[in-house]
Design a protein around this nucleic acid. Structure first.
Length: 786
DNA sequence: ATGCCTCGAGTTCA
DNA sequence: CTCGAGGCAT
């Protein structure tokens, strides 16, 4: 059979490629091999040697290339022109019935046909074909954009490199699931164990991890497979009008489509399918976590549309979350940044849904009481729909007779300070504040976080060591650390742990990590007021509040010594938040830390003048109202402010003068009595001084200040997927024009920008009669704001 | 007082 | 991501 003459290498190469791809298709897609492995290997070797002899015949789509190209540095981002969906979940028959009833009502029909399929437990991807050739593959990512993993997908044998047949569209995107068959997973792990390699936790993580390999040759060694189940962009040719026919067409083109896919009529057909698949679940060659029902008729799908990012025409019917019984070994207390004491269950390690679970949060003392979880209990652990393990309940039969209800300890396990609970609050907190090492560590961790000071490389372990070995007592100490300090710290940590110092092994050159850290710390010195305020870790001050403080007051000095009741002048800052900020700045220790940070070179590059927005709310009446003088209502405060042109005169006014200004006698008396307290008198004076100071600044800054931003004070909402801009970019640009970008639509919303696949927010906007813009209009507006 | 809406805080594992 | 609670409008 061998053509020893080999007259035309090009023709032979083409022939070999075709035969090998056919064999691949029969083997990997149809699961029906037509030639023995030995024959396949022989063809492959022949092709390899021909390609080596005749480099001009090389082709990136040759089957020999499936073994993998050389490593790439990182993954590029790929935007999905048509976003990749997430599905709504149903956990009960009733939820499926609701789903079906909604479709029947909206489309006014009975018992529609559904395409029903297993829900593969793998990794969703999108494959792009142009003129029949595979050109790009990407992970689902967040649905709007994912990572470009073309090289890794090329080595997956059931991914066609070229489409079969001829009638395919010019551009075709096929969506589906990459998964690792169970047998292949077992085989891989057995081998890995033998060779002392890394064992994969479960097939799903195996698939996900394999695709994210930077080196496709590693991916090639992992046994991955693919199932197609949906379309993305299609250009240049008509497609069938049902989902099931679409899948059949994909099959013809060479895509693997699971043979468990069926059609079913109405809810009964769906539920029947669910049960049949459920029975077979354990014997299937791959993991599934439920089944998916999709309305088969594509016109009906279009009519139904989306709610948010999930389609109304499809739903995932999940199998019950996997539950496991295990022993609860202990309940530890975790102390967070704010001192919150969170009970955590330490569990006998147990496999739940494929991963080993050893910890599960118990949320708070009330939750522990509700479940009546006790040490040594046998508990049921579940990895609910998503990932995070939770304790569902106790198995009372297995409870040891001597067990006693668990109680929140009275003192912090870390620093020994008392644990206290505010009236009406659920959480217990460590009262140690600055002295509690746990809180200090968390504070440093928060400070260094990406969204705060963004000190790259300063992670949990390092912070732990720095704090434990006393190199860092406050965040300001970070800025006094030298290269030698880091090296010395590492030496002591190694000595403490009895580990062999890497520095000793490799000589003194192994300090690159320390150099990087010193650099990272240096870089973080240049920051913004907003990030700095957030980094301080003041309770109730997250990114959004930090930003508000920064824009309204413009400079740290104006905030850190402000009588805290005045913070309430800023919208969205109320009593609780203002008090918390005040409490923070009242502590000398915190002020010292800020002084140290500034002295050690932290620079707030964006400090600016007070916002003119303050002028509107900065009135004597508002100030009086916000410092909460007893009996002084909003109306009375405004009235009083009208009567006194000189704020200082008001602060010193006698009972008679107050009554003269129109205040009822008892209100005046209450104010005088309140003022007797030196602390209150002081607050009044300080507030008035701050008021006058800001007024002057506002005048100096010039009332001629810039015209108000076009969208000043207006709220806009983004929904759906934008094409030209990312959501972040759009948000930044709108904010630059003075807008506030909110997450949900209300009557106050000025307009909603709706990208493609816009969902419930768009519905809501229409319902409330809020103006809706498309992306074009937004772009035009950003280009030339009116 | 009541009911949205948004923001903050906390959490698991690879 | 989910829950709770703070802020604000009704």
């Amino acid at each position: 059979m061998a053509d020893t003459a080999a007259p035309d290498p090009a023709r032979r190469v083409a022939e070999l490629r075709e035969r090998i791809e056919n064999a691949n298709h029969r083997y990997h897609v149809l699961d029906d091999p037509d030639i023995p492995d030995i024959e396949y290997d022989r063809l492959m070797r022949e092709l390899e040697s021909l390609e080596a002899e005749h480099p001009q015949l090389a082709d990136p789509d040759s089957p020999t290339r499936r073994i993998g190209a050389s490593p790439s540095r990182t993954f590029a981002e790929v935007r999905h022109e048509i976003p990749m969906l997430s599905l709504g979940n149903a956990f009960s028959d009733d939820e499926v019935r609701d789903f079906e009833r909604r479709i029947e009502e909206r489309l006014e029909l009975r018992d529609p046909m559904f395409s029903v399929e297993p829900k593969f437990d793998g990794l969703a991807i999108s494959l792009r074909y142009e003129d029949g050739a595979f050109v790009r593959g990407a992970t689902r990512g967040d649905g709007a954009s994912g990572e470009e993993v073309t090289a890794n997908l090329r080595v997956v044998k059931s991914v066609p490199l070229r489409l079969r047949g001829t009638d395919w569209p010019r551009v075709l995107e096929v969506r589906g699931e990459i998964y690792m068959p169970r047998a292949a997973f077992e085989r891989y792990n057995a081998q890995a164990r033998d060779q002392g390699g890394k064992v994969l936790a479960n097939p799903r993580n195996g698939a996900a991890g394999s695709l994210r390999q930077l080196d496709p040759r590693v991916t090639a060694a992992r046994p991955l497979a693919f199932f197609a189940y949906a379309l993305g962009v299609v250009e240049g040719s008509a497609m069938p009008d049902t989902h099931s026919a679409t899948l059949a067409r994909l099959r013809d083109w060479g895509f693997p489509v699971s043979n468990l896919v069926e059609t079913a009529r109405g809810v009964d057909g769906c539920l029947d399918y669910y049960r049949r698949i459920g029975e077979r679940r354990d014997t299937l060659p791959f993991d599934i976590d439920g089944v998916v029902y999709k309305l088969d008729d594509l016109a009906g799908q279009r009519e139904l549309g989306f709610v948010g990012r999930t389609p109304r025409w499809a739903i995932a019917h999940k199998f019950p979350a996997q539950e496991q019984a295990t022993r609860l070994l202990a309940i530890d207390i975790n102390i967070g940044r704010t001192g919150a004491a969170t009970p955590t269950a330490r569990l006998e390690p147990v496999q739940v849904g494929g991963v080993v679970v050893t910890n599960a949060t118990l949320h708070n003392a009330d939750q522990v009481a509700r479940l009546d979880v006790r040490i040594d209990d046998t508990v049921i652990v579940r990895r609910a729909g998503d990932v995070i393990p939770e304790v569902v309940r106790v198995v009372p039969e297995h409870r040891p007779p001597t067990s006693v209800p668990w109680q929140m300890p009275s003192h912090c396990p870390v620093c020994g300070s008392e644990l206290v609970r505010e009236a009406g609050e659920v959480v217990w907190r460590c009262s140690g504040e600055l002295v509690c090492p746990a809180q200090r560590k968390e504070a440093v961790f928060h400070f260094a976080a990406r969204r705060a000071m963004d000190i790259e490389g300063l992670g949990e372990r390092l912070i732990e060591d720095l704090c434990d070995l006393d190199f860092v007592r406050s965040v300001a100490d970070l800025y006094a650390l030298s290269l030698d300090d880091f090296v010395e710290m590492k030496r002591r940590a190694d000595a403490r742990d009895g580990t062999t110092p890497e520095t000793a092994k490799a000589g003194k050159v192994a300090t690159k990590w320390a150099e990087n850290l010193v650099d990272a710390i240096e870089r973080s010195r240049a920051t913004t007021l907003e990030r700095f305020l957030y980094a301080l870790g003041i309770e109730h001050v997250g990114e959004s509040t930090a930003k508000a403080l920064a824009t309204w007051f413009g400079a740290l000095e104006r905030i850190r010594h402000l009588p805290w009741p005045l913070l309430k002048l800023v919208p969205d800052i109320g009593g609780e938040v203002a008090r918390s900020i005040g409490h923070f700045f009242e502590q000398a220790g915190n002020q010292q830390v800020i002084d140290d940070l500034l002295a050690r070179g932290v620079r707030l590059g964006d400090e600016h003048a007070v916002s003119v927005k303050l002028a509107k709310v900065l009135t004597l009446g508002n100030v009086l109202e916000n410092i909460e003088i007893p009996k002084l209502t909003h109306k009375r405060a405004q009235q009083l402010a009208e009567a006194f042109s000189d704020a200082h005169a008001l602060a010193a006014a006698s009972h008679e003068q107050l009554v003269g200004a129109g205040l009822p006698a008892d209100t005046a008396a209450a104010m005088i009595a309140w003022r007797e307290d030196p602390a209150n008198a002081r607050l009044l004076m300080d507030s008035i001084e701050a008021l006058n100071r800001f007024r002057e600044m506002l005048q100096d800054a010039g009332t001629a200040a810039s015209a108000p931003a076009p969208l000043d004070g207006q709220t806009v909402v983004l929904t759906g997927t934008l094409v030209a801009l990312t959501r972040e970019e759009a948000k930044a640009k709108l904010e630059a024009l003075g807008a506030k970008v909110a997450g949900s639509v209300s009557k106050k919303t000025r307009f909603v920008v709706a990208g493609s696949e816009a969902g419930s927010k768009l519905d809501k906007a229409r319902e409330l009669g809020v103006e809706v813009w498309d992306e074009q209009r937004l772009l035009a507006f950003l280009d030339a704001p009116e």
